[in-house]
Amino acid sequence: MNANVWVLTFADAFSIATTLILATIGAILTERSGVINLGVEGILLMGAVTAFLVGDATGNVWLALLLPVAVGAAMALIHATLSITLRANQIVAGLALVIFGNGLSQFIGKPVEGKTRPVVITPIDLGPLTDLPIVGPIIFGHDPITYLTWVGAVACSLYLNRTRPGLILRATGDAPATVDAQGVSVARVRFVHTIIGGALMGLAGGWFMLARGTAWSQAATTNGIGWIALALVVFASWRPLRAIAGAVLFGFTLQVPFTLQGQQINILPPEIVQMLPYLATLFVLVMLSTPRARKLLGAPKMLGQPFVRDER
């Protein structure tokens, strides 16, 4: 085994991180408004199958990335209607979305099951930067969406912390009654951010299919990445910039099993190695549950609580 393999592993970790960052930031925007959307995994799957089908039908990469965004937004709209307008239990509504997305992606993806992906997002060549040793492949060897995602994460952080709508968003998650008293509609803030969040999750699924997937197979496509993104939200303590760091770290644990398998390193059976990302995520969650860590986290105070004016 040589150092080159680990460079490639890191490059892959940064690449997988794109999906995780997009999905995590989608979830952060949603949760900062006080809505918890557990349907990430279902939205990722629907995004992935949409990208595949659109790519298969049109052969156009950009169209195949755009429609998953719309599908993600539509699924988030279902969640927003249920949890904001109809005040249903958000946990169960999110789970329902996962089951619905699971079934529907399998159903509409059935005709193309096992087919190889029709279109591919190719990395852009940044000339001398890409040719740099080590840093080249890790940082400068990616496709446009990956770079847009990094910019997007920074923009999202500025939006949350430096703009007035961002302030209103944070207040909506922490003290909706205050926002309401200011004459701002809590429901509107929550609707908008839940839908934008869903759109980002849809993009995450679509990009994952076109950049990282090989063939469409419902059972193997996202493989729990949506749930890892939800754990990442806690890990990133609801802050977009920390989500980047966390996503790379988690991307690394997701990629290591493949590297070990590819290198024929059999210290552990492959099935056991496959468990590691999930166990690592669980471990991180445990570490974050100590009272000291909890104080630093700062979850939105009204997360998952519907807002009813008369009751406050």
Binding site: I78, L82, A96, L97, I99, G103, L104, F107, K110
Partner: peptide, 12 residues
């Protein structure tokens, strides 16, 4: 999978 679609939809 139409059965799973129905299950998810019923719950929603």
């Amino acid at each position: 999978s139409i059965a799973v679609v129905l299950q998810g939809a019923v719950l929603l």
